[in-house]
Design a protein around this nucleic acid. Sequence first.
DNA 1: ACGTTATAGTTACATATGAAACTAATTGCA
DNA 2: TGCAATTAGTTTCATATGTAACTATAACGT
Lengths: 154, 154
Amino acid sequence: MPNPRKPAPVGAEHAPLELEHFLPYRLSILSNTVSQAIADDYQQRYDLSVTEWRVMAVLARFHGLSAREVAERTAMDKVAVSRALARLVEAGRVHRETHGNDKRRSVLSLTEAGWLIHDDVAPMARAREREVLAKLDAEEQQWLTQILDKLLAH
Amino acid sequence: MPNPRKPAPVGAEHAPLELEHFLPYRLSILSNTVSQAIADDYQQRYDLSVTEWRVMAVLARFHGLSAREVAERTAMDKVAVSRALARLVEAGRVHRETHGNDKRRSVLSLTEAGWLIHDDVAPMARAREREVLAKLDAEEQQWLTQILDKLLAH
DNA sequence: ACGTTATAGTTACATATGAAACTAATTGCA
DNA sequence: TGCAATTAGTTTCATATGTAACTATAACGT
């Protein structure tokens, strides 16, 4: 009986995936590259993780959200949000109080310090997004928007 | 002096990011959703991580690669590859020997057991990819390919 | 009213990941 | 040659992340 740990002979019957043409793989590479480029702009400067930045971004847009609502808006799970909020509150970047009618819920908002960071980071993030989109012509940009809308729908 | 941990008043001068229209965020959500759907197919069944699967996929296509070459092909860092290989070799899914002329280098290949898993998982992965692409019409699919080619170039 | 169920959020644990230090082997060049 | 610099790969350590269990509060049904 052959040793199962020996290399197997390669037959033509296998149909290996070509990672470089495989959509999920390509999306993963692109997403990581882009997100990392943005994160590089603020991580060391503000000691701010991607998770924390996303929480700050939604709190900049929607005021008085609860942690659960932040989780919905960021598509992060509640544990990740809880931890990000703990750090942000500790760092004085987010203010947390409890909801008057429901003591389980928190009511969250950026502090002055939080806004200062937001107002510095948001334009950098937008600039990085423009850099990526600049690789495409106007027509491609429109298609990309439409395609992402469809793929992300529901 | 105002308490810096108090919520800051919201002025119109802030320009918050709209995450749901922000390309990096949308890419991240899409990539995670798609990759997770595929991983769900094989993770429990084979006790195989995404990292390990990617290593197996390149070994199915390119025979006798070294660990460094696997890292290049998968765009993973060498530590991740080293760990994935340790598990795959231990599980009898990958065969590792040392290169004749350079004792630092490993020469990697799938075992018979590795091929069996590959031949089961690869079609499932392709099926999931087709499910995603089925949300787009033929024209959109072509644009998507072209756009990803451009964004991933260099 | 009161016990069951659901919800908001945190904690604990186990696993994953990344950066840097480390070992071993090879290469380059004075 | 022989010694410094590179390269392949692993180990270590610190941090991140996900699942499940847990606490506290509120809502629901009888």
